[in-house]
Design a binder for these strands. Structure first.
Lengths: 231, 231
DNA sequence: GTCTATAAGATGATAGAC
DNA sequence: GTCTATCATCTTATAGAC
């Protein structure tokens, strides 16, 4: 009887139909909200309460799932890092396999950027928020350098190795400095601060990935060549 | 009489000799400490108490001088913005006056960067902290774009106008996007996150301005040319 | 799993003495 | 100007009911 009653409360699917999905929903909802807030205000600009309210759960649930606020932040940062870096690694491997000895600076950079720009354009607000967070973390002196190193170094070394094939004369120093310039350009673009919108008085838009993509590749490739070839 | 008295109050060094200098010292000490802390942890990562303790004053004194925490932050940000932007404007004016119709992309960018890189190299820790703060603010989505616009737009428009002289065929869009890439490269370099040190395993150093300067100018100029000339 | 209730301490800001 | 003392609020985190 009580079973029949409780079955009538949530009928659509019988048994324990949405138990798992509800669990996942709560966890994911917390991550989504935290991602959005952290990307705009940084780690210290967000409170656990604020995340809990926006995700329609209690603060205790956040600690139940993630332990501490810091661990929540790490979970946010890691969730998409693993996905995007696997995609970038695969894109560069595929490019290298297809071109072998004929790799170009432009081709290597395009393979490195393509998964990011695609997710930025078509991945929805979650991915946009995530990339804004990466941009903010990358510029944070206190712990940004360490966090970025932990999650992003392997994919960057793959890019540098690829470009070194295209520019065999290049010194290690020139390659690292050039990458640092590319990294700055990329993460500022990902941060989507609305800076270029205001500066250009509405002519350009931070979120216009189709305008960004070809210019970013051209700019970075020309920069790499000039610095590394010295011409 | 009271005039004579008050005249004698701050003569060479008698009377209350260090009254003025002590006043100024306290205010400047607060600004210096706040600058260092804000640049590393962001606005929300710093407490008024923390600044007060490190500056060896009480929290009440900070509110006495600056009003609120937000106004303290604004005072930190503005203090050096006015100095550095006047220097950059003067450097670009001088370059334009000296070269007239013969301005180059490299020359314009060098004039734009020179005062910043000089202060970064020789201005002491205060200037280094300040530039790290600018780098962090520039990547902050919530209020970074607005703050940067308020303080830095005029000097940037001067640079873009100069480069437009060197590249008369360039479209406005290409110029703005290229500047955005330059801005990202610059502010990440200014942030001195130690990122490149770790990435290069000690080969390159975030604070090596002599290594940074020629590479940054070459990279940015080549990028501008490629994007704006389409070749 | 999800909640209520609450501990234990930090925070921005002010009043008022000197 | 600079301090001490303090307020009202907010913070992260936990205990324990359901």
């Amino acid at each position: 009887m009580s079973a029949a009653t409780s079955a009538r409360v949530r009928p659509a699917r019988v048994g324990r139909p949405n138990k798992d999905s509800r669990e996942k929903d709560a966890r994911e909802a917390i991550l989504d909200v935290a991602e959005e807030r952290f990307s705009r205000h940084g780690f210290h600009g967000v409170t656990v309460r604020e995340v809990a309210n926006a995700a329609h759960v209690n603060t205790a649930l956040i600690h139940y799932y993630f332990g501490s606020k810091k661990e929540l932040f790490d979970a946010v940062f890691m969730r998409r890092a693993e996905i995007i870096n696997a995609e970038r690694m695969a894109a560069m491997d595929a490019y290298a396999a297809a071109h072998g000895d004929g790799v170009t600076v432009e081709g290597a950079i395009e393979a490195f950027l393509a998964p990011v720009l695609t997710r930025l354009a078509n991945g929805g607000p979650g991915w946009r928020n995530y990339f804004a967070l990466v941009g903010l973390v990358n510029s944070t002196t206190a712990w940004g350098g360490e966090v970025m190193t932990r999650y992003f170094d392997p994919v960057i070394h793959r890019l540098i190795d690829l470009i070194a094939c295209a520019l065999p004369e290049a010194s290690k120093e020139d390659l690292y400095w050039s990458y640092n310039f590319l990294s700055g350009s990329l993460t500022l673009s990902l941060a989507e601060t609305g800076r270029i919108d205001r500066l250009s008085e509405g002519l350009c838009h931070s979120d216009d990935v189709e305008a960004l993509r070809p210019r970013m590749i051209a700019y970075a490739a020309a920069g790499f060549r000039r610095v590394c070839e010295g011409k």
